[in-house]
Each structure stands twice: as structure tokens, then as C-alpha cells.
Design a protein around this nucleic acid. Structure first.
Length: 417
DNA sequence: TCTGGGGTCCTAGGACCC
DNA sequence: TCTGGGGTCCTAGGACCC
């Protein structure tokens, strides 16, 4: 059984903890550049303030209703998130941190689930003054649904135990498909057109039909709704596969130098993140966009990427590559709204640097790897750093090329992240 | 005038090789 | 030069999440 624990109105709650005078007042938090509303207190929601809406569109409403507005403070939210997760980790045997304000917990071996859910709620509140909702169910997708119910219906006291299939069906019949985790706007529209309107109908639809008309992703969702666990519990965070650093300019920019400056700043930031991950990258790309909202000018969005011959984490290399990309996509006379840098194709430093064989040969065979492993074991060097997709990618190899024999062998080696 | 900043996964289609 | 199928690899784009 899983629990999904998530903090109510996380960003606004973080702000109001330090401002008791704002308790029970309408409060919102804005995105970078004060562009959009990304968090609302319960009172702000009640006033009809929309999630994700541009600030300038809601400004009149906010002023009229006396809503208190904060710019975002990610350092604070990160810190508060840490405290919540630490509390959860102390209470639950295994915790899968899903985002800054939510985590799945494995509840196997716990007797009274609902009582335990309340204990989580109370303890997190004592430690952080933040209120969480707890949804309990046999799969992640159902736990999400239970959590939604816990938040929507106050009489639940913020905890919903959905272990019984009967209760699962009852709840699903009440919820529109759009509330299901993994079903967004587009999918909802398509499902509705086929007569699938609530979560229960989705759960009872034919797997083959879903697979044929949609994708394996939605198939997994359907199975999860039926109580078949398809999404793995991930205690250790997966290594990143790409790093993005980007920002809106907050105004229209047409000067090449100004855009280039932005690209350089973000390239440097991306390189920092890369080093913090102890990774090296081979792929560097830059992108620019004009405003998609401007009705008078045509929309332009482009990106270009370069694959370097050697993986690097050096700011200068990454910056130079990003500027070369920018030169390829730059168009004179446009008003740019946003630009950024993306890094990918990660490698890790480690065995590859022993030069026992060409680390980037695409089809290096598993025999060679076995030799490397043996040598490492002999030398007592059993600490490796793996890349994005584990060691397969560190060597520029595909998983298919690996024999099961040495995959097993690998599991004996401690992995450092 | 002002419209976030990250991420993930999957699929289709083109290039290329045999 | 024509024809064609099968396979791999890569990229772009779509959809979703918070």
C-alpha cells in the first residue's frame, strides 16, 4: 500500500508561516519575473483566482479583493521541503520524493493505515507548521486520486484510505477523467469524445482499445486505476537525463548582444548544475522563442544543438558551444521573449578514464567490460560514478549489448550518485 | 507592456546501411 | 540504374507532470 503525501498550497503556506498576520487571508505567489500565479492560498482559490494565469490579467481582481502577493523565494521553499521530507523519512520505511511538495511512502507492514495517515499529518504539522493531505491506495495513481479526495472533501480530515476496491470504484465514479494523474487537457477531450467521462469508465475501458488508440502511457494509467501497480517506487532519485536553464526576458528583446548575454548566463548556470550532478555532457543546445501571445508578429521558435567530441563540464566549452548554436538560429529583426540552454548526453567520470578501451566506441563488447570490472576489483577500486542510464550510457553503449552476466556483476558494485 | 521554469516519456519519421 | 525490405539510430514534437 502506498500513501501520497502532499503539502496544501505549498508556496503560499511557506510564506505565511513567517507572517501570522496573513493566516486565513487570501495570498498568492508569482513565478519568475512575476509572470504568472503559481500558488494560491485556500482563500485566494475561493475568490476565483486562477492557477497559472498571467499576473497582469488577474491584477485587478487581486487588488479589489486585497489579495497579498509574493514574488517567489525558491531558497525558502527548498528548505521547507527538506524539513517535510526528513520528517516523512523518519516515519516511513521507504519514501519516494516526487516533487518539491509531495512524496510517496511505502506503507507495507503498517497496521491501521488511516491512523498512520493522521499521525503523518500531525507530525509534519508539528515540525513545520505545514498542512499535508494523505491519500492511501494500492497504486500510485489511485493514491493520487485518494489525495485529491482528501483535499476536496474537508470532512475527510485530510486523510483518505482507498484500500478497499469498493471505495475505489465509488470515488472513481464521482471524478471526471481530467482529475486522473496522467490525463491532461488533450487526453480528456479525446476521451470525452469517446464517451469516457469519469475515472471509473476509464478504469473499465478495454486495454487493447486504449493501447491501439492512445499509448502505453495511458494503458499504464488504466492498469493502475484497476489496482495493478505499474509505476515503480523509486527511493533513490533517478539521475537526470538533461539539464535546462532558461528564462523569459520579462520584456521584448531584439538586440543580438542582449540575447547572447542571456545565453551566456544560462550556459554558465547549466554548467554549474552539471558539475553539481558530477556529470559531463556531450550535447549542448540553445533555443530562442518570440512571444506566442503576440498576434501582430509571426511566432518564431528554434533550437540548435552541437555534439562535442569530448564530454565536458567546463563552463568555457559549454558557453562557446551555446553561442555557436545561437548564431545558427538567430534571426535579425525579431522580438525575443525567451531563451535558454539545454545540456544532454551525459557521461560520468570513472572507469572510462582508465583507457582500457575506447570509452566512446558504440559497440564495445561486454567481454571488455568484464575485464575492466575484474581489474577494478583487483585494485580494490569498486567505486564508480554512473551516467544517466547507468553504466550503459557511460560507455556509450546500448543495454542490448550487455550480457546478463555482467549486469549481475554490476549489482555487486556500490553505486555513488 | 507584462504570459514560469523546470522535467519525463513516447512516437513518428527521416537518414542511412546492408 | 532500378527495386525493395529490414533494421538501427537520431531528432523533433507532442503530451504530461509539478
Amino acid at each position: 500500500m502506498y500513501a501520497l503525501i502532499d503539502v496544501n498550497s505549498f508556496y503560499t503556506s511557506c510564506e505565511t508561516i513567517w507572517r501570522p498576520d496573513l493566516l486565513n487571508k487570501p495570498v498568492v505567489v508569482l513565478s519568475n519575473n512575476d509572470g504568472c500565479i503559481i500558488s494560491r492560498s485556500a482563500q485566494a482559490k475561493r475568490l476565483g483566482v486562477k492557477m497559472g494565469a498571467p499576473y497582469f490579467q488577474q491584477k485587478a481582481l487581486l487588488e479589489r479583493e486585497g489579495v497579498v502577493v509574493f514574488s517567489s523565494n525558491y531558497a525558502l521553499y527548498g528548505d521547507m521541503s527538506q524539513r517535510v521530507m526528513t520528517t516523512l523519512e523518519a516515519m516511513c520505511p521507504r519514501v519516494d520524493v516526487y516533487s518539491i511538495d509531495e512524496a510517496f511512502a511505502d506503507l507495507s507492514g503498517i497496521g491501521d493505515l488511516e491512523t498512520f495517515g493522521r499521525a503523518i499529518r500531525d507530525t509534519v504539522y508539528q515540525h513545520t507548521r505545514l498542512t499535508v493531505g494523505v491519500g492511501i491506495a494500492p497504486t500510485k495513481t489511485l493514491a493520487k486520486l485518494a489525495n485529491h479526495a482528501a483535499k476536496t472533501w474537508t470532512k475527510t480530515g485530510g486523510v483518505v484510505d482507498l484500500s478497499s476496491p469498493l471505495r475505489q470504484r465509488k470515488l472513481m465514479a464521482l471524478l471526471p477523467v481530467s482529475e486522473v494523474w496522467g490525463v491532461g487537457r488533450r487526453l480528456s477531450a479525446r476521451l470525452n469524445a469517446m464517451g469516457i467521462e469519469n475515472a471509473l469508465q476509464l478504469a473499465q475501458s478495454d486495454i487493447g482499445f486504449i493501447r491501439k488508440n492512445f499509448s502505453v502511457v495511458l494503458e499504464r494509467t488504466v492498469r493502475e486505476l484497476r489496482g495493478e501497480s505499474c509505476l515503480a517506487f523509486e527511493e533513490t532519485p533517478a539521475t537526470k537525463q538533461e539539464i535546462i536553464s532558461s528564462r523569459s526576458f520579462g520584456k521584448k528583446v531584439s538586440d543580438y548582444k542582449e540575447v547572447r548575454e542571456g545565453i551566456c548566463t544560462w550556459a554558465a548556470r547549466a554548467a554549474e548544475k552539471l558539475r553539481a550532478e558530477r556529470q559531463y555532457c556531450r550535447y549542448v543546445s540553445a533555443f530562442v522563442k518570440t512571444s506566442p501571445h503576440d498576434a501582430h508578429a509571426p511566432y518564431y521558435s528554434n533550437r540548435a544543438g552541437i555534439t562535442l567530441s569530448t564530454p565536458t563540464h567546463d563552463t568555457r566549452d559549454i558557453l562557446a558551444a551555446a553561442v555557436r548554436c545561437l548564431e545558427a538560429i538567430w534571426r535579425e529583426g525579431l522580438h525575443y521573449q525567451k531563451a535558454g540552454v539545454m545540456l544532454g548526453d551525459f557521461f560520468s567520470q570513472g572507469v572510462a578514464q582508465l583507457n582500457l578501451f575506447d570509452p566512446y566506441a558504440p559497440k564495445a563488447n561486454s567481454e571488455a567490460l568484464m575485464t575492466v570490472m575484474d581489474k577494478l576489483n583487483q585494485q580494490g577500486k569498486n567505486r564508480l560514478w554512473f551516467a544517466g542510464q547507468g553504466i550503459t550510457q557511460a560507455w556509450g553503449m546500448k543495454r542490448e549489448y550487455l550480457s546478463p552476466a555482467w549486469t549481475t556483476r554490476l549489482s555487486d558494485v556500490p553505486v555513488c550518485r
